[in-house]
Design a protein around this nucleic acid. Structure first.
Lengths: 196, 196, 196, 196
DNA sequence: GATGAATGAGTGTTCATTCAT
DNA sequence: TATGAATGAACACTCATTCAT
């Protein structure tokens, strides 16, 4: 019997932000889409800024939970990289249909945080969780003897994440000819360079 | 003795876009900053869209020229990577002072192109030139015998660019603890994995 | 052990009105400042109008009590005029620090009453009390033989009050060069013209 | 063939301010009443503040011109006082019909200036012109031998103005029983006290 | 070719007030 | 009696754009 208008507004706003980009969605549009009145929305969020802040927080919390729940934990790195490729291709395909891909929203969310320094810990937590999972897999593989012992798990994890991130950006901007193939090559080269 | 008002307007607009972000600069602001009258600016650009398009084109042309002129051609890859690190730290430092870094503008420019498909070749040319230069360096090093011959120059170049790009994004979003150190580690790991 | 929320709300509202002007204080601000909930305040005052009306009444009652308690009764007129000067300079000094002086609120209260005719008796009572006190002093002085007997105490009292009031308005509006000196001259000229 | 939208807007705004009070007239109302579009009005006045400022200036300039043109110059003081009474009763009668009298606007204009110190010279000029005219009349009467020579023309002028001003305020606020009669008494008492 | 007055839909925000709980 | 979620008209202001001169 809960109403939780506040949560619903954030939900609706995130949807709109994902569809048209954060900068291109007006508060009025959010209000209209929420089905509530102007005053009601302002009752929950004193300004557009505050709504956006709530959305940014909700976005990163979702992302963090997604990472935490990702079934990566005990996988060998090989499978994790395949998992990353799969996810990436899903995002790419989704992005081709919509005007603004989830990736664009993701970047807006990063940039927004940059201007509200007190929010920095939030995406940092997401990023840290992601990196830690990768590091864990690499160390497990090192124990298993499939990955060289003198490789820094930390740096390797960051390399994988950065390469995937950069590749994502290049994909979005349409400068790559065959994004999926090229991502596979990228991750393969990294993987091959650290396996025994 | 041409006035080239058109070019001047683009120049002024790019300056404003760099300072406040493309979405946060109105046509009126550009007009005011240009010192020309409303009618005059509209005489050169029939709409804001057209001005933006001209700016996007000018931006990528500048970037491409910069890459083409970069003194990378005959360097060993080692030095090229140092050069990349230097550039990166320059951008980071600049970005710390301004609200919107050049990096943010760069990403806006990528995203804009995405929605105006006929412009795609323009950043693609920039990216291609960058990648070709790297490939060239790698191949030279392979000839010199400092880099393994069985490594794909193409994939390695893309790996370097992607990793740097992704690292830039992570830096901008303040999730890294020591961006410069981490970039060094990243590039070192790549370099070590391909040297003999 | 009564809470007298009603009185407290009026108190808070008067404070705000004095600080920012009656027109520039919203009902919401009063509610917030009162520390009560929206519903609670509306329970006491069915509308903003009613709250204002209560404030106007409270304001004039305070003013009336102040006049009634003023230690003027048995003073010679000479001292009363000095007393007026003192009060005036106090108000001026206070008004120089705040944005809205008590004088501005006083005038708003007068103007408000004008539009709610049933309230007219309230400031009239204040004004009457003030005038009566002055008349009394003048008549006493006439008995004492210090003031001419053929002078109308009524008109003289009104003259003093009007001159002081007008002078206050000129002071507030910054058109006088040396308000305090000029008030002294004003009252002296009146006083000299009626003394024997 | 001049359009002078700017002047027309000020005219319309002053009309509305006079009718409903400065604080109770919204920019939208001015825009609607002006017959122009929102953008057009904002083209001339960058903000409501600027429009108000222009109105304040225009108001005081009108008032100053009115004083300068008043046929007071060579009159004996007696007639000038009658003239003042006449003017006052005109204002009172007008004020009884409208919600907000010209007197209320006049006071708002004084108060506004108080918060924009660079405007202070403007009503000061009006006030100075008024006082100078009175002083002149008094000095002429002193030459003619109808007014005592040992009276300060300066103080007397200020006394007349203050008393009239204060009386106006009392009239507006409905605390007087017979404003016109009382003003006559007031001015008579002043006049009688300075005549030989 | 160049000017700037004019347009009107749109923005984010505030307001006094109502009403289900 | 008391709460605070909800309402919607109004507010000041910005925007990209048009067009008569």
């Amino acid at each position: 019997m809960e109403k939780d208008s506040k949560g619903q507004i954030v939900e609706v706003a995130l949807q709109l932000f994902g569809d048209h980009g954060m900068k291109d969605v007006s508060f009025n549009q959010v209000i209209k889409a929420s089905g509530l009145s102007k005053g009601a929305v302002y009752h929950h969020f004193a300004s557009k800024q505050e709504l956006i802040k709530a959305c940014v927080i909700a976005f990163w919390e979702k992302m963090t939970i997604e990472v935490i729940n990702a079934p990566i934990e005990e996988m060998p790195l090989k499978d994790v990289l395949s998992f990353l490729q799969l996810k990436s291709s899903e995002i790419i395909q989704e992005g081709e249909q919509k005007n603004d891909s989830i990736f664009e929203l993701y970047i807006s969310m990063l940039f927004y945080v940059r201007k509200e320094p007190e929010l920095i810990p939030i995406p940092k937590k997401y990023f840290g969780a992601f990196k830690d999972k990768l590091i864990n897999c690499i160390k497990n593989d090192q124990k298993r003897g499939t990955i060289k012992k003198d490789i820094s798990a930390e740096t390797t994890a960051l390399l994988i994440l950065s390469a995937a991130e950069g590749h994502g950006l290049y994909t979005i901007s349409c400068v790559l000819d065959d994004p999926q193939e090229e991502l596979k090559n990228l991750l393969n080269q990294i993987y091959n360079s650290i396996t025994i």
